[in-house]
């Protein structure tokens, strides 16, 4: 799979800007856990806040909020939406 230029890791999405999830790295366990919270390829997410000191990312997806550790956010690739 080739990675498009527009894709970027979730933690690089500026707060407030929506993005579409394009790919999720990591194992099946992580993929399943994220899916159960609505984070799956195709889903539209928005960063609400980012914790300092490489803290977690607060996301809004499907109308609810989810905190993801930075290590996980970095494995989720999104395409910024206007």
């Amino acid at each position: 799979m080739s990675i498009d230029f527009c894709w970027r890791p979730l933690d690089a999405l500026p707060p407030g800007q929506p993005g579409r999830v394009m790919a999720i790295g990591g194992g099946r366990g992580l993929a399943l856990r994220l899916r159960s919270l609505g984070i799956r390829p195709g889903a539209v997410v928005r960063t609400v806040a980012q914790g300092p000191w490489r803290g977690p990312v607060l996301l809004e997806v499907d109308g609810c909020r989810v905190a993801l550790g930075r290590g996980i956010a970095r494995r989720i690739f999104v395409q910024p939406l206007p």
Binding site: L30, V66, A67
Partner: peptide, 10 residues
């Protein structure tokens, strides 16, 4: 573990 995954309720 892989990191924080935590639903934040309203």
């Amino acid at each position: 573990g892989p990191g924080l995954i935590l639903e934040i309720p309203p």
